[in-house]
Design a protein around this nucleic acid. Sequence first.
RNA 1: GGUCCUGUGGUGUAGGGGUUAACAUGCCAGUCUGUCACACUGGAGAUCGCGGGUCCAAAUCCCGUCGGGACCGCCA
Length: 438
Amino acid sequence: MKTIYMKDLANYYNQEIEISGFVDKIRDLQYVQFVIVRDSTGKVQVTIEKNDINQAMNELVSHLTKESTITAKGIIYDRPNVKLRGMEFVPSSFDITSVSEEQLPIDVLDYTNATDKELRLDYRFLDLRTERNYLIFKAQTLCEMAMREYWLENDFIEIHSPKILGTASESGAEVFKMDYFGKTVYLAQSPQFYKQMAMAAGFNNVFEIAPVFRAENSHTAYHATEFTSVDCEISWIKSHHDVMDMEEAFCKRMLLKLKTEIDDDYKRLFNKEINLNDVPFPRISFADCKRIIQEKYHYTGEKAHDIDRREEELIGIYAKKTFKSDFVFVTEYPFAARPFYHMLDENGLTKSFDLLYCGVEITTGAQREHRLDILKKQAVEKGLPLESLEFYFNFFKYGVPPHGGLGFGLTRFLMKLFDTESIREVTLLYRGPNRVNP
RNA sequence: GGUCCUGUGGUGUAGGGGUUAACAUGCCAGUCUGUCACACUGGAGAUCGCGGGUCCAAAUCCCGUCGGGACCGCCA
């Protein structure tokens, strides 16, 4: 007999079925026992009267512990007076398939969510048993699916670039060094060079969803030393605006998918609706961004060539107020704030952009410099050793399409979507300067 | 990397020189005619992160150490 998931129980009223799940709660009264059983799709009340026929089951349940797993056969009834979903399951057999220890290290059902976040991460497998956390990873799955649908329709190829590198990939971030049969190698902190290689290979458009590693001792709510980066790169573009068009399209596709699939649960568990953000994402130049923040909010960031956390938040607020958009592109950053491979425009500014979502940077993108002489010149300006980049420069020697691309931080997006305090809560298993377990 | 904060039963907190170390929740046992955040009664559970110092007396004050967090910087 096949296990019926909790979400589907209403299709089986008055039929003999089998259910399985974790023991969520036990209420053992004088003449009746209630066991709330939970799987990832929902809960149901299992009701067992205390009588001669049920004696064996009664005995089992009286010593049952929370979070143990059970399988029961029986009949599901429509019972409007039961508060939990108006149904109840009356078993004819009840088996304990695994026994949980009595005392749990964290409060799994903690509806106030008060347990220390770090302790919850130590016991992540228990923490993840909640409906709330399940929904986060369901949303992640849907986001990736929506993006893939978009890319497939637009002739993208999925690539899997190597994560062990002989030369440090250049993205401004620090790299992890690793011993490799006596030689030093580096963990990829970006698929950047390989996406560009795919452009040189004539793959018109590519994407990759894969881990990247950054040796940055960053202690913030939105950094990790290992995270999943969504990268794409497209050919034959006229400017970085073509790259932004592409990103805007897949972001909207993602929100639409989320709205269609999980809006009810999202409302119930997070108390807000998916915002389709059905307006053009505003595109504000770096210079205008600085000017607007000064004029409207009387704030001046510390750095002239980049925007700081406060400025990100303020421009996010401005975009929401003025354009009703959670998203805002900030474009044409100064070269000082950007890597050497970003293409410069006639004003000496980069043909680049960041995408901010609810005041947090979720993307850096740009048109890439594909003309080898200029590319080398820019590398020299940044003080990079040309010898180590020889393999990269080779990509540009035999014809390469004008191209550009971006990296999208999926966890940062999810963090803001679900209003979590930290990226850790939307990462399956977080990796940071102080955490490499479990 | 810089600045600041924090460590007390399983969990979350209170207590800030002398307490039987308190409260909530969880756990165990019992009572309870169907509960639904069940209720009620009782019980177990803490060498107050670790080491040292001051003091008649330290969870409490001081020094050190270890763990953890927040914000900023760096980036996705």
